[in-house]
Amino acid sequence: MKLKEQKSREFLELICIVCPLGCSLSVTKSDDRIRVRGGCKKGEKYVKEEITNPRRVVTTTLRIKNGVWPRVPVRTSSPFPRDKIPELMKFLSSLEVEAPQKRGEVIAKNLLGEGVDLVVTRTIERKE
């Protein structure tokens, strides 16, 4: 798995995902200044975040022991730093939880020290 590299470049082309318009945005970056052409105000805010600190809600599954299903789906409690998602996936591969698990419960805290928790998204009963 390889996430898109986000090196400090002078020019960037991004697609805005704030609304369904999907505007193409040209971004110029020099020192700390970020200039955005194309799109709207909301788009500009999106781009600045996307360049300085891109984050994504991560959804995946964990192994679950003695459950009616072998996997329990989970999500991060808030968006997680995008560039650390591969490391997060590796960490989550090492986890195994025990059934039952209830939707909404926090299953792991402060993932990789990023202050984001992991939440169960489907109740998995214990296998009889």
Binding site: M1, K2, L3, K4, I15, I17, R56, R82
Partner: peptide, 8 residues
Amino acid sequence: VQCIQDFN
């Protein structure tokens, strides 16, 4: 953007 571009 989030499923294709993010992963090249």
